[in-house]
């Protein structure tokens, strides 16, 4: 009887317990190394795969780093003008109420130019799901200050740190929309550790499954790193995020159905 098992014997298809979901295309992700967007994409697609919704899901891509999301997600996708993803998703959902419609937006898209669309889609209680990836910066255009940039945080357009006297306070858009009666489920998660990834996946599962109930808008914020914009290595940026972002953007469910 052999007392060891070789690598080849373990690496057999029947022993596989985790692999990249086939709902992600083979196209290499355009994101920087260590960026949370890739993990967020994967979690959404894993949930859609597990719920067997590939043929019934329509996603709306934003403008920002994730503008090319339609290249990576193997579902029906629509690209919206900057910030207008909730409005486009509203139209799609109203015309095709049987489909699962979600938007995937960054903070420059959702919390800056798209604030009006976001708040009104939430206030109307549109029966869609919004995934909001918040890294506190305009990542794609080179790390400029965003509405969600923390006080005293250095960016390309606030090189001495964000001065709240002249540049205002960071926008807690997730808390803001949680107050609106049209939202059904609002949660804030992150994807930088295995435990947080598992929690985020549960929140995404809830957000998608609540669409069946026709009770209102589900909103999941994912606090992410932007190591290129923050000028750090991926590991440093995750540590910085834990130390600085989470005190201002605390993780957890903000509004849960009663």
């Amino acid at each position: 009887m052999p007392d060891t098992i070789t690598r080849e014997e373990i690496c057999q298809p029947e022993n596989m317990i985790y692999c990249r979901t086939p709902l992600l295309t083979d196209a290499p992700l355009s994101y920087c190394p260590g960026c949370g967007h890739g993990t967020a994409h994967r979690l959404i697609m894993e949930v859609i795969e597990e719920m067997n919704l590939q043929a019934d899901t329509i996603g709306v891509a934003p403008v920002g780093c994730s503008v090319l999301a339609y290249d990576f997600l193997d579902i029906d996708m629509q690209q919206a003008a900057h910030g207008r993803a909730p409005a486009v998703a509203t139209g799609i959902k109203r015309l095709m109420p049987d489909k699962f419609v979600f938007t995937y937006q960054g903070d420059g898209d959702l919390a800056a130019i798209g604030t009006g669309e976001t708040i009104h889609a939430c206030n109307r209680g549109e029966n869609i799901t919004i995934f909001f990836v918040n890294n506190g910066i305009y990542g794609m255009t080179g790390g400029q200050m965003a509405p969600t940039t923390l006080p005293n945080m250095k960016t390309a357009t606030s090189p001495f740190g964000r001065d709240v006297q002249t540049m205002g306070y960071p926008l807690k858009i997730t808390e803001l929309i949680a107050m609106l009666p049209g939202t059904y489920f609002v949660s804030r998660q992150s994807v930088h550790t295995p435990a947080n990834v598992r929690k985020a996946k549960k929140a995404i599962e809830k957000a998608i499954s609540y669409q069946k109930l026709n009770k209102g808008l589900s909103f999941v914020e994912i606090v992410s790193n932007c190591n290129s914009g923050w000028k750090m290595t991926p590991l440093e940026s995750n540590k910085w995020m834990e130390e600085n972002m989470f005190s201002f953007f605390p993780l957890g469910d903000i509004k849960v159905p009663k």
Partner: peptide, 24 residues
């Protein structure tokens, strides 16, 4: 434990696992 595969943003890691006693 699949921790590495969960945090990999590019989904580059595939994980295999066997129960040793059973396979032996």
């Amino acid at each position: 434990c699949i921790n590495c595969a969960l945090v990999c943003p590019d989904g580059a890691i595939t994980v295999y696992r066997v129960k040793l006693n059973e396979s032996l």
